[in-house]
Every structure is written in C-alpha cells, then in structure tokens.
Design a binder for these strands. Structure first.
Lengths: 215, 215
DNA sequence: GTAATAGATGACCGTAAGTCATTAAATAAA
DNA sequence: TTTATTTAATGACTTACGGTCATCTATTAC
C-alpha cells in the first residue's frame, strides 16, 4: 500500500513548489507588497490552495526565511570545517556572515522581520518552532567554536562564549543593517565607510578576546 | 488681523491632539493592529479629518516616533551636561540609552520600524526629513563627545569617533532588541543574562577605546 | 444679512488576506 | 466496471482597513 506514501511525497513536493513561488514573489516585491494572489499565480494554483498548505502569508514568509537560515548555517559550517586553527575559523565566521550578507541580501533582509515581534501575529506554532530550531543551530555553532578557542588556549578563559557570540552578532548585524539601508547616508553625513567600520570593529572585538593580543 | 495666527495655533494644537491620540493607540495596540478608525475615535474626530493633518498612517507613526527621538536626545543631552570628566559622560551615554530602553519601551520599539525600509512606503518627505534631522542630532551628540574625549587625551587618538559611535550603538541596540523580544529565551536556552551581557560588552568596548586602559 | 472660504464629516472605494460552499479528481467499495 | 466516498482544488465571497471626496457646517469677509 504505497498510496499514502506517494500522496505524502506529492504533498511535500507541492509545499516546496509553493515555497519556490513565494520566494520568487517575496524577493521581487518584498513582504508587504507581495500578495497571496500573486504567489498563487506564480505557483499556478488558486489562492485557496495555498491555504491548504500554509496557514497564512506570514507562515509562507517564515518558510522562505528558514531556507535562508539553513543556507547561512551551511555556509558557516563549511567555513569552520577546514583544518585551520580555531582562532582563524572564528575569524572566518565573521567573514562568512558578511559574504552571506553580500550574496544573499534578500534572505538577510528577511531576518529584519523576524526580529520585529509586531509582525508575526499569524505565525503557526510549527513554523515558529522550526525558526527557533534553526536559530539555535546557528548560535550553537558559534558558541561551540568559541568554547573550543578557549579550550585550546587561544582565547582568554574569562570570556563567556555565549556573551561573546552575542556581542559579535550584535556588532556585525547592526552595521550590516545600516549598510543595507543607509550606506550612502552614512557615507555622506559622517564620512563613514561602513565596510571598513565592520572590518575594524570585528578585528577589535577579536583582539579583545585573545589571550595573547600579540598575534 | 490676528485671525490667521489664531488659526495657525489651532491647527498646530489639533495636530498635537491627533498625535496624542495616535500615540495612545499605537502604544496600546502596536503599529500594525492600530487602525485609523481607532485613532480617529480616540481623537474624537472623523477619519477624514486625520488626513487633513497627516498624509498617512505611517506619517502619524513617524510623528510619534520623532517625539521618541526628541525624548532620547534630551535625556542624552542632560546626561552629558554635567561637570563630570568626558570619559564618564561617555559612559553615561550608554547607561542613559539603557534607561531610555527601560523607561520608554514603546518608543524604543518604534525604532525597529524605521530601521526596516519595507515599512515606510507612504511617508511624506517632510516627516522623513524630520526623522533624519533628529537622527543626525543624536549621532552628532555622541560623536562630538567622543571627539572631545580624544582631544582631552583620555581616548586613544587613533579612534575614529563616528566609527566608534557606530560600534557602541550596534552593540547596545542589538542586545537591547534581544532583551525586548527574547530575554527569557536566551536565559533558558543559553543561560544568558542579557543585562549583564550589555554591561560587560559596553565596559569592554569602553576599555578598548581608552588611551590608558588602567583606569 | 449674504457670499465666500475653510474645516469637518462619513459613506464610499479599492485592495488584499483569508474562508467556504461547490466542483473535480482520485481512491475504495460494490 | 460502475458507484460511493474521500481528498484536493477552486474562486466567488466576506471582512477589514487605508485612503478619498462630495457634501455639509461653521467661520470669516463683504
């Protein structure tokens, strides 16, 4: 009796197809301007059908965002699976997040939203759970690596890995958000080259984590 | 002929009244859920009248947000108009922003929005200009103070005041955003006390700015 | 007292998310 | 193979809300 299995596969496939369509429309128009009718048309389905597969527009949005989280996680995992010293890998994390920002800008922008609690009022428990899982995987990856740096003696033992991750994340994210929306503004108003600010600030933060600031 | 003047005063007064109503409704319900009908009712006016005074819902939102910027600016200005040493004043900036976060949470949350470019599609040039002006005043206050710290010799001369402000802002803002939305989550998942993380990270950043890290 | 102007109103419009009765297709039963 | 049943898909419809505008009202000018 393979019918239920085949149906389940078909259902999964359709969910993916809908997500593909949603991704195209979201990336082209943005969350707010994208309409369910447009997504339905892109998916070559009726609007009603979308709601058989996803509870709400926000759920669709989160579905796409989770793809973005996975991509980032894969990039970070790859960047830290080399045979370089741990301290170099930690540096790689920052560079990789910046590369993600440059290469997957649309995904990066989606993270803005999730940040804002006012915009997930219609999200299903399931999607929220997936988001948290993905998020946790990201944090774990960074925290574990810093812990390893401590264990290996390159990073000061009084550094708290979780706190340290938070600081690195806040700094890079804050600056990249500015780069995304107001790069020109900051260039003109304050003569700031945000890319340089990012590099310098990350270097500074790394420096202050090191046991031996000579290196 | 004082009639035009009186009318102008009345118009200003009504604009303020509408903004008061909008603020009440936005603070109670949030931007998305708040409706123009509710604001009109709170202002004891018809919806059409709101549009005689403000171009759009987003303009109203920005009007309220600008109040929040002004409050923050006043708090920062006051915190740095003491006769303490400059280096202490810089420390005060961070503490004051945190106090703002605690005491004016609703205003702090409004800043999320402005951050997100997808949500000001209906904003008037005028309001946008006011926002930028307010924003600039904030940056100027911080940058000038850091410059003074350099001039007085407490802060390393190779520090770039604008870059430095950006780093301090990114860090504190990033952590406070997390505190706002996910304080419990980070406490439970990673055992992080975000308030402590904020204190420690700010201390660390100040430290690395100092000419003589002894103090 | 009347005309002209400015201010306020709320019914109305357009749009878009989400629903649901109906239809179509696929599977199971006879 | 035909009929019944379950499952999937549809799109017209409902609801909600931002924004508009012809109409009405009050104020000012003449």
């Amino acid at each position: 009796m393979g019918i239920p299995e085949r149906k389940e596969r078909e259902r999964e496939h359709r969910r993916e197809e809908i997500l593909n369509a949603a991704q195209r429309v979201f990336f082209e128009k943005g969350l707010q301007p994208a309409t369910m009718d447009e997504i339905a048309e892109a998916a070559e389905l009726s609007k009603g059908t979308l709601y058989l597969y996803y509870k709400s527009k926000e759920d669709l949005y989160l579905g796409v965002m989770i793809r973005g989280i996975d991509i980032l996680h894969n990039m970070l995992a790859e960047a830290t699976s080399t045979d370089e010293p741990t301290i170099v890998k930690i540096k790689n994390l920052g560079d990789t997040y910046y590369r993600y920002f440059k290469e997957h800008r649309s995904f990066f922008r989606m993270f803005y939203f999730f940040q804002n609690p006012l915009f997930h009022t219609q999200v299903s428990e399931e999607m929220m759970g997936l988001c948290h899982t993905g998020n946790q995987k990201l944090w774990k990856l960074v925290i574990d690596l810093i812990q390893r740096g401590i264990d290996e003696g390159d990073i000061r033992p009084d550094v708290d890995p979780a706190e340290c991750s938070m600081i690195l994340w806040s700094n890079s994210n804050g600056i990249m958000m500015r780069m995304d929306t107001q790069e020109e503004y900051f260039k003109n108003m304050l003569g700031m080259d945000l890319e340089k600010v990012l590099q310098k600030s990350m270097a500074m933060l790394f420096q202050s984590m090191l046991r031996d600031p000579a290196k």
